[in-house]
């Protein structure tokens, strides 16, 4: 597979990061950084990461199955993650999640027909004191109301 020069530079740095012979340590960061660029983790990507980290494809695949941020299927261009864990639950996170389902017209871990949005009900993302919290891709949004969520989605729709 071919990647952007920026990602190749990241990969090269990763392979230098761990002690000699410990390239397996680079598997998880490499998968996540690659997913950010290519969208999801395909069989081809698993083979590629396995080759670069000198491990078997199975050793890569079992990791993909374990970590919740690694996706075997394409997610939307904008992955909307609504936290409903305790601090968010107490401040309306669950209602916000249901509102997001309506606004986007999709359910948990589903993708809109145009591939622009996906939705996920997530566990604590570390924004408890500024709940309810939403992460769109990697960007945090704090104290999100239903109106604010609609506004954020509206802005992203325009950006497509």
């Amino acid at each position: 597979m071919t990647f952007s020069p920026e990602l190749e530079a990241k990969f090269a740095k990763l392979l230098e990061t761990y002690p000699p012979g410990r390239t397996r340590s680079a598997v998880i960061p490499m998968l996540l950084f690659a997913q950010d660029e290519v969208g999801h983790i395909s069989n081809e990507l698993i083979e590629e990461v396995a080759k670069r980290c000198k491990v078997t494809p199975l050793q890569v695949d079992e990791v993909v199955g374990y970590y919740s941020m690694l996706h075997r299927k394409p997610m939307g261009k904008y992955h909307v993650q609504v936290c409903t864990n305790i601090s968010c639950l107490l401040t309306g996170g669950e209602e916000l999640y249901h509102h997001a389902e309506k606004t986007l017209g999709i359910g948990n871990k589903e993708v809109t027909a145009d591939g622009q949005f996906s939705l996920e009900e997530v566990e604590c993302i570390g924004a408890c004191s500024w709940a309810p919290a939403v992460q769109i891709n990697y960007e945090f949004h704090h104290q999100v109301t239903a109106e604010r969520l609609d506004q954020l989605v509206g802005e992203l729709r325009k950006r497509q």
Binding site: T17, R22, R24, S25, A26, V27, I28, P29, L31, L32, F33, C53, V55, Q59, V63, Y66, Y67, S68, M69, L70, E123, C124
Partner: peptide, 22 residues
Amino acid sequence: HTGAGAYECGEETALLDSIEGK
């Protein structure tokens, strides 16, 4: 080093397995 979404990796020995790529 980045994790990829797993509460369990905050447990220190699970974190060690995770940093080893498992």
